[in-house]
Amino acid sequence: MATVKFKYKGEEKEVDISKIKKVWRVGKMISFTYDEGGGKTGRGAVSEKDAPKELLQMLEKQ
Results as ranks from 00 to 15, higher is better:
residue 50 D to S: 08
residue 3 T to H: 03
residue 28 K to S: 08
residue 26 V to F: 05
residue 42 G to S: 09
residue 7 K to T: 10
residue 6 F to W: 14
residue 8 Y to R: 03
residue 48 E to H: 06
residue 47 S to W: 13
residue 2 A to R: 08
residue 60 E to T: 07
residue 12 E to P: 04
residue 30 I to C: 05
residue 3 T to S: 05
residue 17 I to F: 04
residue 12 E to Q: 07
residue 42 G to Q: 08
residue 60 E to H: 15
residue 36 E to W: 08
residue 3 T to V: 10
residue 34 Y to S: 01
residue 43 R to V: 06
residue 14 E to M: 04
residue 44 G to A: 11
residue 54 E to M: 06
residue 54 E to W: 05
residue 39 G to Q: 06
residue 25 R to L: 10
residue 48 E to Q: 06
residue 32 F to N: 00
residue 62 Q to V: 06
residue 44 G to P: 01
residue 40 K to S: 14
residue 38 G to V: 13
residue 61 K to G: 09
residue 23 V to S: 09
residue 26 V to G: 04
residue 20 I to T: 02
residue 41 T to V: 13
residue 35 D to R: 06
residue 48 E to V: 09
residue 37 G to S: 10
residue 11 E to D: 04
residue 21 K to H: 14
residue 17 I to D: 01
residue 32 F to R: 00
residue 46 V to W: 01
residue 1 M to Q: 09
residue 24 W to M: 04
residue 24 W to E: 03
residue 51 A to Y: 02
residue 43 R to F: 10
residue 19 K to I: 09
residue 55 L to S: 00
residue 10 G to A: 02
residue 45 A to T: 07
residue 12 E to K: 06
residue 48 E to I: 05
residue 21 K to V: 12
residue 8 Y to E: 04
residue 55 L to Y: 00
residue 41 T to Q: 10
residue 57 Q to D: 08
residue 58 M to E: 09
residue 5 K to D: 01
residue 40 K to M: 13
residue 46 V to F: 02
residue 6 F to A: 01
residue 44 G to L: 02
residue 48 E to F: 05
residue 16 D to Q: 14
residue 4 V to Y: 00
residue 27 G to I: 04
residue 53 K to V: 12
residue 9 K to C: 15
residue 40 K to I: 15
residue 19 K to F: 14
residue 1 M to D: 06
residue 38 G to M: 13
residue 14 E to T: 07
residue 31 S to Q: 08
residue 12 E to Y: 08
residue 8 Y to H: 12
residue 49 K to A: 12
residue 28 K to A: 07
residue 53 K to Q: 14
residue 51 A to H: 02
residue 46 V to S: 05
residue 28 K to G: 12
residue 43 R to T: 13
residue 59 L to R: 03
residue 35 D to Y: 06
residue 59 L to H: 05
residue 36 E to P: 06
residue 55 L to C: 02
residue 33 T to F: 10
residue 2 A to H: 08
residue 5 K to H: 05
residue 10 G to K: 02
residue 24 W to P: 00
residue 48 E to T: 06
residue 39 G to M: 07
residue 56 L to G: 06
residue 53 K to I: 10
residue 22 K to F: 15
residue 32 F to W: 01
residue 55 L to G: 00
residue 37 G to C: 15
residue 15 V to K: 01
residue 20 I to R: 00
residue 62 Q to R: 03
residue 37 G to T: 05
residue 58 M to Q: 06
residue 4 V to L: 04
residue 23 V to Y: 06
residue 34 Y to Q: 00
residue 12 E to C: 12
residue 32 F to A: 02
residue 54 E to T: 07
residue 56 L to T: 11
residue 49 K to D: 14
residue 30 I to F: 13
residue 62 Q to T: 08
residue 22 K to Y: 15
residue 38 G to I: 10
residue 19 K to V: 14
residue 41 T to L: 10
residue 46 V to K: 02
residue 47 S to P: 14
residue 30 I to V: 09
residue 58 M to R: 09
residue 5 K to Q: 03
residue 5 K to F: 03
residue 8 Y to L: 03
residue 27 G to A: 08
residue 36 E to T: 08
residue 56 L to E: 13
residue 13 K to D: 01
residue 21 K to E: 14
residue 45 A to F: 14
residue 29 M to A: 15
residue 59 L to K: 03
residue 58 M to N: 04
residue 6 F to T: 01
residue 50 D to V: 06
residue 23 V to F: 07
residue 13 K to A: 03
residue 23 V to N: 01
residue 30 I to E: 00
residue 59 L to A: 12
residue 43 R to E: 15
residue 46 V to C: 07
residue 25 R to D: 03
residue 29 M to W: 11
residue 22 K to R: 07
residue 61 K to F: 12
residue 30 I to D: 00
residue 31 S to D: 06
residue 2 A to Q: 12
residue 49 K to H: 12
residue 24 W to L: 04
residue 45 A to D: 15
residue 5 K to R: 10
residue 46 V to A: 05
residue 51 A to T: 11
residue 45 A to C: 14
residue 62 Q to D: 14
residue 22 K to N: 15
residue 18 S to E: 15
residue 53 K to S: 13
residue 52 P to D: 03
residue 16 D to T: 10
residue 31 S to G: 05
residue 16 D to W: 12
residue 4 V to G: 00
residue 26 V to Q: 11
residue 21 K to M: 15
residue 60 E to G: 04
residue 18 S to A: 07
residue 37 G to W: 11
residue 5 K to I: 03
residue 8 Y to D: 09
residue 6 F to S: 02
residue 1 M to E: 07
residue 59 L to P: 02
residue 11 E to I: 11
residue 8 Y to W: 09
residue 62 Q to S: 12
residue 29 M to R: 08
residue 41 T to Y: 11
residue 47 S to N: 14
residue 36 E to A: 12
residue 10 G to W: 01
residue 28 K to I: 05
residue 14 E to N: 06
residue 39 G to E: 06
residue 1 M to W: 15
residue 5 K to T: 03
residue 4 V to D: 00
residue 46 V to P: 00
residue 50 D to P: 03
residue 23 V to H: 02
residue 50 D to Q: 08
residue 6 F to V: 02
residue 50 D to M: 09
residue 44 G to E: 01
residue 15 V to G: 01
residue 21 K to T: 14
residue 39 G to A: 11
residue 48 E to N: 08
residue 26 V to Y: 12
residue 2 A to F: 05
residue 15 V to E: 02
residue 45 A to H: 12
residue 60 E to V: 13
residue 56 L to F: 06
residue 11 E to V: 04
residue 1 M to H: 10
residue 28 K to P: 10
residue 33 T to C: 15
residue 43 R to C: 15
residue 60 E to S: 13
residue 54 E to H: 07
residue 25 R to V: 07
residue 50 D to W: 13
residue 52 P to F: 02
residue 53 K to C: 15
residue 56 L to A: 15
residue 3 T to P: 02
residue 19 K to Q: 13
residue 24 W to T: 03
residue 27 G to N: 13
residue 15 V to Q: 01
residue 25 R to Q: 12
residue 23 V to C: 12
